[in-house]
Design a protein around this nucleic acid. Structure first.
Lengths: 340, 340
DNA sequence: CTGAAAGCGCTTACAG
DNA sequence: CTGAAAGCGCTTACAG
C-alpha cells in the first residue's frame, strides 16, 4: 500500500508538506504543490480514511439507517433522496439496512453506535427514543417520524395529520360520502413503543376529525385497523368486499396499503376508481406507473431530507446545542386516476 | 469521548488488558474479564472504528455501490438482499449511491477508491472495467453484469441469455406467434462502454435466437430498441399502438419496461393479457402487486449476492488470488397474470 | 495472566 | 514556505 511517506520520498519533500499540498495547498508554493500532486498521481496514492478520521476526529460520513431497503418503497425513496442531500451538504452518505427489530437489540446497538460516521438519520423501527439516545453515545441522531410527546432527539415528521386531512377532504370533494380508513395499526415493530403516540393513530385520528368536520358519520367500523404495508391492504380489500361493507372511497395510511387494496379489490372484481375511489400517503414512485395510477399525499422528500440533514449538521458542527427539535416535512396532494 | 484508557483506569488494569478482555477474553482471567466488561458498560465505552481499522488494516465493511436506490427497484432489491448476505458473511454492509455517471469520473473515483471498506460490489454504470480496476487501487471489487469479452475483475452476471430465452419460450408455449422484444438499447450510461459486449444486446440476441429456433419469423421491426427503465416502456407501448404494429406477446428486457409498457397499453385501451401477453425480467417486488401482476424472469438475488460476496471475501481474506472469475446467477420463471 | 511499548497513516500546531 | 515531532485510539508481538 502506498502511503503519504512514499509520496514524500518520491517528491523529495517532507511528509507534512505532502499533507498540506494534497489538501488544497495552503502554506505550499506552487512549485512544491505540482511536484507533490505529480508524485501522488504517479504512485496512485489514496489517503487512508481510517488514519485521517482518527486524527481529525471526523469521518465526514452521515449514515441513513433503515430497516428495509426494498419494499416498502418509501425507504428506498428516502435513502435515494437523502443520499443526494447529504452529498450536497458536503458529507458522504451511506445507507445501512439493519433489519432492525426490537428483539434484536444487539443489531440495533451495532447499527447505531458502532459506526464509522459523524451522525445518523434513523428510522426508529419501534425502538424507543430513549433507548436510541442511550445507544448513540453522543453521536448526533435525527429520528424519522417519532411521535413521542416530547422529542428526546431531533426529529423530522411526515405530515401525518395535515396530509391525511387533505387526502380525506379530497375524496369528499370528489363526492364520496361513505368513506373508509385503512391503517393506523401498530406495526409489529411498534410493540416496544408503548406509551408513545404513534404516527399510525395520528393518521387515523386526522381522518376521523376530517370526516366529522364535513358533517359525515364516522363510526368505528369505518376505521379498519391494518399494518403499514402491502399485504394488509390486500387482505383488507378482501375482508371489506366479503363482509359486504359498503363504501365509495378509501383513505389509506400508506401508498403500499393502497397498492395492496387496489390489488385486493381487483381480485374481487371491484374497480378503482369506478366503484371505489382510493388515495394513499407517501408518494412512492411506483404510483405513477400502476393501473390505475395512485393518488397520494406525496411527502416532499427533499424537504424532509433537508430538514433532517440541517438539524444533524448543526449538531455535528456544533452550531446548535440546545433542546431537541421537531420539524415536519411539506407535502403535495397528487391527484391521479385512483380518485378521479 | 470515552476511550479504552478510561476503561483501563476504571477497571484498574492496563490498556492492553482492556483490549484483550473486550475481544473475547483470550489471555485474560475470568475475574479481570468481568471487571473490564463492567467498567466498559458503566462508562458506555464504544471502540473507535477508525483507530481499530487503522491498526488492523481491515475495516470489516463491504460496500454495495449502485447509481440509483429507488427506481428501478432492481437496485433496491439487490441492495436489500446483498446487505443480508454480507452480514451473514461476517461483514458490515453499507450501501452507497453514486449517482455515478461517466462524465463525472471524480464521483466515481471517490465512490470506489476513497472508501472506508475492505471491498466493493459495484454496478459499473457504464464505466469501463479497466478504469474501475485502475481506480480501485488494490481493493477487491466484484462487478455486476459487466459483459466484456474477458473479465478484468471478478463479475456476477444476471442470466441474460438463458433468462430471456426462457421468457420467450414461455410466451410461445402460451400460444403467441407474433412476438415483440423491447429493450437492448444502450443506456445513456453505456456510452463509455464502446467495444464491450453489453448485456442489452445479449438479451436482444437471446430473444431473436429463441424465436427463430421455434420456427417463427423475427424481422428487425420486431426488435424495439429502448432504454432500460419505465418511461421507455411507456413510450414504446404508445408507439406500437399508434403505428399499427400488431403483436400478441411482448418480451421486455426488464420488469420496469414491462411496467411502463402495460401502463402505456392501458393509455391506449389495450388490455394485458387479454389483447397482448407480457413478460419482464428481473423479479422486482412490485410485480406481485400490480394489476395485472407481472410475469417475470426472477433473478435469484440471494444466489447472485452469495456469488458476489464469496468471490469478494475470498479476495479480501487472501484465499484466492488468481484470474478474474465470472459467475452467473440462477433464475426462476414466474408466471403471473400478464402472460396468462 | 498481565503490562510496557511500538506502530498503523494521517494532521497540525510549532519552530525555523 | 518547509520540516520535525507529537498524538489521535487502538492492537499485538514481546517480556515478565
Amino acid at each position: 500500500m502506498v502511503t503519504f511517506k512514499d509520496v514524500a520520498k518520491e517528491a523529495g519533500v517532507s511528509p507534512a508538506t505532502v499533507s498540506y499540498a494534497l489538501r488544497g495547498g495552503e502554506h505550499v508554493s506552487k512549485h512544491t504543490m505540482d511536484k507533490v500532486t505529480a508524485a501522488a498521481r504517479k504512485l496512485g496514492y489514496v489517503a487512508n480514511p481510517s488514519a485521517r478520521s482518527l486524527r481529525r476526529g471526523r469521518t465526514n460520513v452521515i449514515d441513513i439507517v433503515v430497516h428495509e431497503l426494498d419494499v416498502p418503497y418509501f425507504y428506498s425513496r428516502l435513502s435515494d433522496v437523502a443520499s443526494d442531500v447529504i452529498r450536497e451538504a458536503g458529507y458522504q452518505a451511506v445507507v445501512v439496512k439493519t433489519g432492525m427489530d426490537p428483539n434484536n437489540v444487539s443489531a440495533a446497538v451495532s447499527s447505531i453506535s458502532n459506526q464509522y460516521c459523524d451522525g445518523v438519520i434513523l428510522n426508529p423501527s419501534g425502538l424507543p427514543a430513549q433507548e436510541i439516545k442511550r445507544l448513540s453515545v453522543n453521536r448526533p441522531v435525527v429520528l424519522l417520524d417519532e411521535a413521542h410527546d416530547r422529542p428526546v432527539l431531533d426529529t423530522v415528521m411526515t405530515p401525518n395529520e395535515e396530509g391525511i386531512a387533505a387526502a380525506t377532504r379530497h375524496l369528499i370533494e370528489r363526492g364520496c360520502h361513505d368513506l373508509l380508513f385503512i391503517g393506523g395499526g401498530r406495526d409489529e415493530l411498534d410493540r416496544y413503543a408503548e406509551g408513545s403516540r404513534d404516527t399510525g393513530p395520528a393518521r387515523t385520528h386526522a381522518f376521523r376529525e376530517t370526516v366529522l368536520d364535513a358533517g359525515l358519520p364516522c363510526d368505528d367500523a369505518r376505521l379498519i385497523t391494518a399494518g403499514w404495508w402491502t399485504e394488509p391492504g390486500l387482505e383488507a380489500a378482501h375482508r371489506i368486499v366479503d363482509s359486504g361493507l359498503t363504501c365509495d372511497g378509501v383513505v389509506c395510511a400508506t401508498d403500499s396499503l393502497a397498492l395492496g387494496l387496489i390489488r385486493g379489490f381487483a381480485d374481487r372484481g371491484v374497480r378503482v376508481p369506478d366503484d371505489v375511489r382510493v388515495i394513499g400517503f407517501d408518494g412512492i414512485s411506483v404510483g405513477r406507473w400502476t393501473v390505475p395510477t395512485i393518488s397520494t399525499v406525496e411527502v416532499d422528500m427533499t424537504d424532509l431530507a433537508r430538514k433532517a440533514v440541517d438539524m444533524l449538521v448543526s449538531r455535528i458542527e456544533g452550531t446548535y446545542d440546545g433542546e431537541p427539535r421537531r420539524q415536519t416535512a411539506a407535502f403535495r396532494l397528487v391527484e391521479r386516476e385512483s380518485s378521479r
